[in-house]
Amino acid sequence: MRSLRYLAVLGGLLLPLIAGYAAAAEPLAKTLFGSKTLPSATAPQSFGFYSKGCLAGGVAIAVDGPHWQAMRVSRNRRWGHPAMITLLEKLSREAAQDGWPGLLLGDISQPRGGPMLTGHASHQIGLDADIWFTPMPNRRFTTNERENVGARSLIKDGSLNVDDRLWTPAHAALLKRAAGYGEVERILVHPGIKKKLCDTVTGDRAWLEKVRPFWGHDSHFHIRIGCQPGSDGCKPQRDTTPGDGCDGSLAWWFTEEPWRPNKNPDAPKARDIMTLASLPRACRQVLEAPSPVSEAAVTVGGPRYVATMPATANAFLPTPPGREIPVPWPRPDP
């Protein structure tokens, strides 16, 4: 009996170690998803949460469009749910009415979503996109410039406030335009940019509810849309707090607490330990699904592009003929 108890105790000690070794031996999810150069040739669906999931049937936005240019093209992060790509095209066209000459697009998602080798914690399910605060120039960037030209911060050096020499009414109009779309649930900006909006926006302020302060986001803003029809495995983010957000939740960002140095900077980030087993079960099928015949078959937009694309579009059909047209402290929920 004593030996049985000894074996039971020993087993209880060894099993977690064995499981830990097995998990360590499993390839990291960021490696698996980061190695995919094309999406799955399946219907578009988002699985899991924005920071823990994957994307099936993604489509890519063209490197160049009438009112946008994609930056950092070598990262291969121009992919998203068709609804997101449609939204970016629409925003690029309609923002011209507000005096914005065109969008410089940052990262959206990888071809099959999932955690990235570097950078973002979110952007995993094709429903997030970054847009630079730098307006598009009246020429096309070279390949080299797309990789090396930087987005300029709107925050004054050494402060948490907007540099008034750089801020323009067109920046506010662009954010208002983006927030006005029903599918957009959140727009993340630097706290100083949120404060600038709170201090200067007059008249209709309802759209400010969607604009949330968050670390970074001083040189770009982050658009997040909600889970789309047909994505039953998508986990939504909870609703934003009602109101314009120009209250104590914003004041918190201008205290010392959110900006203290990380007490444990060497702690691994979630993407550095996340394995495929950590993601929704469907993500394994997403990884194993066949690819479309080429990137061209799943790239929409461009100098000749479809003005609108239904969210139900099949991600691997050829594009129809075009028509000219780290956080260790409690914080307010973004």
Results as ranks from 00 to 15, higher is better:
211 V>D: 03
211 V>A: 06
212 R>F: 09
213 P>T: 07
213 P>R: 02
214 F>D: 05
214 F>M: 08
215 W>F: 12
216 G>I: 14
218 D>I: 02
219 S>T: 01
219 S>H: 04
220 H>F: 14
221 F>N: 08
221 F>G: 08
223 I>N: 03
223 I>E: 12
223 I>Y: 15
223 I>P: 10
224 R>H: 15
225 I>Q: 00
225 I>G: 01
225 I>M: 06
226 G>M: 01
227 C>N: 00
227 C>F: 04
227 C>S: 00
228 Q>G: 00
228 Q>E: 00
228 Q>H: 00
228 Q>I: 02
229 P>N: 05
229 P>Q: 05
230 G>C: 02
230 G>P: 04
231 S>N: 07
233 G>Q: 05
233 G>E: 03
233 G>W: 01
233 G>R: 01
235 K>W: 02
236 P>Y: 00
236 P>C: 02
236 P>G: 01
236 P>H: 02
237 Q>P: 00
237 Q>W: 04
238 R>F: 00
238 R>N: 01
238 R>H: 01
238 R>T: 02
241 T>N: 05
241 T>G: 01
241 T>F: 04
241 T>R: 05
242 P>K: 03
244 D>W: 07
245 G>T: 02
245 G>F: 00
245 G>C: 04
246 C>F: 08
246 C>S: 07
247 D>Q: 00
248 G>V: 14
249 S>V: 02
249 S>R: 04
250 L>P: 04
252 W>T: 04
253 W>S: 05
253 W>R: 07
254 F>M: 07
254 F>G: 07
255 T>A: 04
255 T>E: 10
256 E>A: 11
257 E>D: 14
258 P>Q: 13
259 W>N: 02
260 R>D: 15
261 P>S: 10
262 N>W: 14
263 K>S: 15
263 K>H: 13
264 N>I: 10
264 N>Y: 11
264 N>Q: 12
265 P>T: 12
268 P>N: 13
269 K>V: 13
269 K>Y: 13
269 K>F: 13
270 A>T: 10
270 A>C: 01
270 A>N: 05
271 R>H: 06
272 D>P: 10
272 D>I: 11
272 D>E: 15
274 M>T: 13
274 M>Y: 12
275 T>C: 06
276 L>D: 09
276 L>M: 11
277 A>S: 12
277 A>Y: 12
278 S>L: 08
280 P>V: 15
281 R>G: 13
281 R>C: 12
282 A>T: 12
282 A>P: 13
283 C>D: 14
283 C>N: 11
283 C>I: 10
285 Q>S: 13
287 L>P: 08
288 E>Q: 09
289 A>S: 14
289 A>Q: 10
291 S>G: 05
291 S>L: 07
292 P>S: 04
292 P>Q: 07
293 V>N: 12
294 S>H: 06
294 S>F: 11
296 A>Q: 14
297 A>Y: 03
297 A>L: 11
298 V>H: 08
298 V>S: 09
299 T>W: 07
302 G>S: 09
302 G>A: 09
302 G>Y: 04
303 P>F: 10
303 P>G: 08
304 R>S: 10
304 R>Q: 10
305 Y>G: 05
306 V>K: 07
307 A>S: 13
307 A>Y: 13
308 T>V: 09
308 T>Y: 11
308 T>H: 07
